[in-house]
Amino acid sequence: MITLEKLDKVYQTDEIETVALNNINLSIDRGEFVSIMGPSGCGKSTLLNMIGLLDNPTNGSVSIDNFQIENWPDKKLALFRNKKLGYIFQSFHLINDIPVIDNVELPLLYRKGVTGKERRQKALDALKKVGLSARTKHYPSQLSGGQKQRVAIARAIVGHPNIILADEPTGNLDSKMGGEIMDILQNLNKNENTTIVMVTHDEHLSKQTNRIFHLFDGMQVD
């Protein structure tokens, strides 16, 4: 489902060249729950961004669902992200100026043919799945960290993407909250056959996934 071949990412400034990823080859099947582990600065998030089509590799290729993603125009890429991918960030990245329900509806706004009513219903369903039906009118600033991450998950799943990319989803939460978030992700993986790629520092969490992909200094180590 996801195939990375000879992937490099080099950050270049006037004076310094930093190799973030070096010759990464990775294949993830549909329905797999893969965790990416490694020390800080080893390129975990960079790799997730490549998979999530948030950033372009310097060399190599990314293909998802047999689509070779290379030099796609912005519009096509945006549509692909919208339909196939869902993101969960460590710092939630909720829009503070709009209420929870509008935050969750966001991906559907960029999808053609979805009426306002449908959007609202799907967002309510997604919030129900993460146990936040009672907080739809709240603003993100009125929620706890765990609740914010649930909203972020609801937003990630509202468009029924095949793949969810989670960048340290429990990094800003205590272990109890982290456990709850992990349960939600496990359910999604098992019950809805959603492919999940998760970056984590936490070995305890990574052990709950199907496969662990280790990185060190931008290179694959397993």
Binding site: G52, L54, D74, A78, L79, R81, L85, D97, Y110
Partner: peptide, 16 residues
């Protein structure tokens, strides 16, 4: 800017 990042992540293109 964070909002822009989120919108783009979830399918917002440059034009929209």
């Amino acid at each position: 800017s964070s909002e822009i990042g989120v919108r783009k992540s979830f399918g917002g293109n440059n034009l929209t």
